[in-house]
Design a protein around this nucleic acid. Structure first.
Length: 127
DNA sequence: AGTATGACTCATT
DNA sequence: AAATGAGCCATAC
């Protein structure tokens, strides 16, 4: 079955029509809109952006999101099982979990407790 | 300039 | 049920 190609440049406005460099920025914009106390997944963001097979790129965008202004709450993005797969990329191995718990999200064994209830789907919430 | 490598996910063995 | 392959595309080397 043929998968849809990445057509993000035609589905979202780009400031530079010669280059499709907006994917990361789109990702960061979505992540900035995740409310405190909620989390979403790489795949959900990719899906919202119209490129559901680009979940990996979302993770990569997170890796490039440190130090950005306005800040990107990268700790609110986990994998589809609610596991903190990106925690190793924070300053310390416990920082991601600490940030989440400070926002009222419970984490146990690197996994979000009650994940389905705190899950925030941009495709629904930003519809 | 080509190859390798990911904070992922899904379909297919 | 576990492993593998494929698609994604920006970076690093």
């Amino acid at each position: 079955m043929q998968r849809k190609k990445n057509t993000i440049s035609s589905e979202f406005p780009v400031t530079d029509s010669s280059k499709n460099y907006t994917f990361f920025e789109n990702v960061w914009d979505v992540v900035r809109q995740i409310p405190e106390g909620r989390v979403t997944t790489y795949g959900a963001i990719a899906n919202y952006l119209g490129t559901k097979s680009s979940a990996r790129m979302v993770g990569y965008a997170m890796n490039s999101s440190f130090g950005l202004m306005p800040k990107v709450p990268a700790q609110r993005v986990v994998n589809r099982n609610g596991i903190l797969s990106g925690k190793a990329h924070f300053a310390t191995s416990t920082l991601m979990e600490e940030l989440l718990q400070k926002e009222g999200i419970q984490v146990e064994d690197d996994k979000i407790v009650n994940f389905t209830n705190v899950f925030w789907d941009p495709s629904i919430e930003l519809a």
